[in-house]
């Protein structure tokens, strides 16, 4: 398997009034071709900042990549490009964004430009990256809308975002993201803001498109159900660090990190027998303020199984091939 993206020891810091927050603090992972990688964790764990680092879309005055590398491996076997070294506004970075790597955002209601029709917004990428003329691009836009399951695409292409529902808008966002056949798609909680029934439709659509286009996806979510449905492999993040990495099957069968266990226990069970046995067990406490991190295992203050050794921060230990965990319990 060849990698599409290889992130090594990425550190992205955010400057706030109270000091520097290490939002992403030494994260390493890779995504294989045609693989769907899930990234889970509560809000504030650095999932979105990791994604925005890869896209070089960080709000430039507050956040920046301090060190580490993000290697993108192009399709035709060309030498890999270290995105972390590129200037976010450079031509080189812009030719990757939208063309090689695309992104779908959490809020479909606010992610489309209200003063242009959806057609105009889809053809923007086509005109930019595919060197099409306007007429060809419009025809392609109609095809794309049809492809993402929008009825009457010939009419819808001329509509404005406010004429569409949230689910429709997210489909349009997907159409925009897929317009230039990207190799790698980052989806930042693409279904969180949608109704449950619409969520299922959108996930279904993404799964189908991933297989049709042979895309790799990095799926950011805090929903373990979405992980089970969509992903091949999972990265569990806590306070800017990877705490567990495993194949999806492994994560559900034998979760090793107490935090992963906590996340799984907070999913309501549908099976009535199971439900009677164990109640929902929430993780105690909240994600602490990242600017106040001291030393030791970052999860220790909330961990039910913390012991003396947790004063020291554990390394990422490979328990089995492909299953790594950052916890002293599995030394």
């Amino acid at each position: 398997m060849t990698h599409v993206i290889q992130v090594d020891d990425l550190r992205t810091y955010i400057k706030t009034e109270r000091g520097v927050v290490k939002a992403v603090d030494g994260v390493s992972f890779s995504v294989d071709e045609k693989e769907v990688l899930g990234v889970v964790g509560e809000s504030g764990c650095g999932k979105s900042i990791t994604a925005l680092s890869i896209m070089q879309l960080l709000p430039d005055r507050f956040a920046s990549i301090e060190s580490g590398s993000i290697n993108y491996i192009p399709r035709d076997g060309n030498a890999s490009i270290d995105i972390a070294r590129l200037n976010p506004k450079s031509r080189e970075m812009r030719s990757i964004r939208g063309k090689e790597i695309s992104m779908i955002f959490q809020e479909p209601m606010t992610s489309l430009n209200p003063v242009y029709t959806v057609g105009e917004q889809i053809i923007e990428s086509l005109l930019l990256h595919e060197k099409m003329n306007k007429k060809e691009a419009m025809m392609r836009a109609v095809e794309l809308l049809k492809h993402v399951g929008i009825p009457d695409p010939e009419l819808r292409v001329r509509e404005y975002p406010h004429q569409m529902s949230g689910g429709m808008r997210q489909r349009v966002m997907i159409a925009i993201a897929l317009s230039c056949n990207p190799r790698f798609l980052i989806a930042d909680e693409p279904t969180t803001a949608l109704d449950v029934t619409i969520q299922a439709q959108i996930l279904d659509l993404m799964k189908r498109l991933q297989q049709e286009h042979d895309m790799s996806i990095m799926m950011i979510t805090h929903n373990m159900g979405v992980v089970g449905l969509m992903c091949d492999r999972v990265l569990v993040m806590y306070l800017g660090r990877v705490v567990e990495e495993a194949k999806v099957r492994e994560i559900f069968k034998s979760p090793l990190h107490p935090y992963t266990l906590g996340l799984l226990n907070s999913i309501p069970k549908l099976n009535p027998k199971e439900r009677k046995k164990d109640r929902l067990i929430p993780i105690a406490g909240n994600v602490p303020d990242p600017s106040e991190i001291v030393t030791g295992c970052r999860f220790a203050p909330r961990c039910p199984r913390a012991f003396d050794k947790c004063q020291e921060e554990p390394p990422l230990i490979e328990v089995e091939t492909g299953h790594k965990v950052r916890c002293w319990l599995h030394e």
């Binding site: 896209m55 879309l57 506004k89 970075m93 812009r94 030719s95 990757i96 964004r97 939208g98 063309k99 695309s102 992104m103 955002f105 809020e107 606010t110 992610s111 489309l112 430009n113 209200p114 242009y116 923007e124 990428s125 930019l128 990256h129 966002m173 925009i176």
Partner: peptide, 20 residues
């Protein structure tokens, strides 16, 4: 606004993002 980020995510030059 979120849609400005969407515009940048398409790889549009900054000049176009500001204008459109």
């Amino acid at each position: 606004k979120d849609y400005v980020r969407t515009g940048r995510s398409k790889g549009l030059p900054e000049r176009v993002v500001v204008k459109k």
